[in-house]
Computed example of a mutant assay.
Amino acid sequence: MKKFKEFDIPFVGLKEAKHQFDYQIENAFFESFDYDEFNKAAIQVSLELDKKSNMLELSFLAKGSVNVDCDLSNEPFDLPVNGKLHLVVKHGEEYNDEDEELLVIPHGEYQINVAQYVYEMIVLSVPVKRVHPGIKDGTLSSEIVERLEELKPKEENENNNKEIDPRWDTLKKLLTDK
């Protein structure tokens, strides 16, 4: 992880207190992870490290926006991103990151790299379905949205105007006869 050197936190030299670290995350960060879902990214991540005698407590907070393509119209838009992550780091016999809120590092370690945790926090804070706000409020006009409106299933009101097949009435009696 030499390419994420700025995310290395050497905790051995720090005093037992709270320490603040700030990171500006842009698209190049995600490209390093081979993640290409974002067109652009501008996210401010603040990390508060609380060093205690037997453990470290890391509190991540991400705020910013990513430019993504809408899943319905394929129009790019800025999506606000807000993420939180709390991580406890303890010393143990061997490295163990099976628990998402607890990281065990070997006794000889003197630093921790937080790039993977920043990446996961931001990617998981983006919704799975990304819908342009213009589609929700009806202000986006594009050829794709108009075509989707044309192909939308017709309402059941048309079926209410027609006569109901008499065979259905016989079947409905079965539901009421007990």
Rank of each mutant, 00 (worst) to 15 (best):
K172S: 07
I135A: 06
R147E: 14
V126K: 11
L124K: 04
P76G: 09
I9D: 01
K90Q: 11
H91V: 04
L140R: 02
H132T: 10
V68C: 08
V81R: 11
G64F: 04
Q24I: 07
P76H: 12
N74A: 13
K173S: 10
D50M: 00
E101P: 03
L171V: 10
A41L: 10
G83E: 01
R147T: 06
Y35Q: 07
I135P: 01
L79I: 02
K152Y: 15
N96K: 03
S141Y: 05
M1V: 04
L148C: 09
E6Q: 05
E109D: 12
M55A: 09
L87T: 02
Y119C: 06
F29D: 11
L175A: 12
L103G: 00
I122E: 03
Q24F: 07
E26T: 08
Y23I: 09
S142R: 05
K52C: 10
I164A: 04
I9K: 02
D137A: 01
L102I: 13
V114N: 05
G83R: 01
N160Y: 08
R147M: 09
I43G: 03
V66S: 04
D137G: 07
Y23V: 08
E98H: 03
E26I: 00
E6K: 11
M1S: 10
H132E: 10
H91D: 09
E163R: 14
G64K: 09
S59A: 09
D34S: 05
K152M: 14
Y117S: 07
G64D: 05
K154G: 14
E120P: 14
G83C: 06
S125C: 05
E98D: 13
P133M: 12
Y117A: 05
E150D: 13
N74K: 11
F77E: 07
L102P: 15
I144D: 09
G134D: 12
F30S: 11
V131E: 06
L85T: 03
H86Y: 14
K178Y: 00
V114D: 01
V145M: 13
F7R: 01
L47G: 09
K63L: 11
G134T: 10
I144N: 06
H86N: 14
I43E: 06
F33A: 01
H107C: 03
S59M: 10
L175I: 12
P10F: 00
P106I: 04
A42T: 09
I164G: 05
Q111H: 05
F11H: 03
L124Y: 01
L171S: 08
N161D: 12
D137Q: 04
N157T: 09
V104L: 12
P10K: 03
L148V: 01
L47F: 14
L14Q: 02
R147H: 06
S59P: 02
L72K: 04
L151D: 13
E57T: 00
E150K: 15
L58R: 03
Q111K: 08
A42P: 00
L85K: 15
L87P: 07
Y110G: 12
K15A: 15
P127I: 01
N39E: 13
I105S: 08
D22N: 14
K154D: 15
V81G: 00
D69G: 11
S65H: 11
